[in-house]
Amino acid sequence: MNSIKIRSHNLNVFYGPFQALYDINMDIESNKVTALIGPSGCGKSTFLRSINRLNELIDGVRIEGQIYIDEKPIYARDVDVVALRKKVGMVFQKPSAFPMSIYENVAYGPRIHGIKDRRVLDEIVEKSLKAANLWNEVKDRLKAPATGLSGGQQQRLVIARVLAVNPEVILMDEPASALDPISTAKLEELIAELRCNYTIVIVTHNMQQAARVSDYTGFFLNGRLIEYNRTEELFVNPRDKRTEDYITGRFG
């Protein structure tokens, strides 16, 4: 049984006079990986940042339409943004460990949300690092500064930090674009494992990556969702000429 986790309904986003997204209607399935592809500046990241309301941080942004998570509107007046962001974690393009220890990085979220018991924190940190495939590499130096980790390790640390607050959805904004091929492979492997328990939406520039990791793919162009389908379908039988041109490398 498939169920819809995230539903975007007529979403329009404006940055001042510039319209970044036009009428996005998109249903994203639970416990699947959905990839968003398209050229730079076409609105993929804007859409992603609309799902955890991180867009609101930008001066002059205006959002119309609605996004539903578990059928509850997230742009309603009574929505608690903190609870929303706890439920919808995000991994950014640039791996960015906080300038504190590996342990403190992972414990940051749980502490913010009021967990103080050291044993509970220890447990969460271990569980999250294990789930992010980083435990074996760092278990002997949890107190060491996280900024000393490699880019790939930092990105997995960021994922562990996100997992530590127990989200249901994980948004990833080109998570591998700053990583070397080996780190990228490890990250993709991790995404494949995480899909069993989380709904993942990933923005990527790399079409092979989209094809490898995702179940569904949406193609964005100039702020519009041009085509959205099962990944094999979209890559093998694109219905729209523009999708075909893009995935065959004719532009972008």
């Binding site: 960015s96 906080f98 940051y108």
Partner: peptide, 27 residues
Amino acid sequence: VPREYRENSLALGASKWQTIRKIVLPS
């Protein structure tokens, strides 16, 4: 202080003040 620190902290559900107190000011 890198913008990424703030975004990561806020995306984890931290409030602005928590982000400033725990991430921005120490950095």
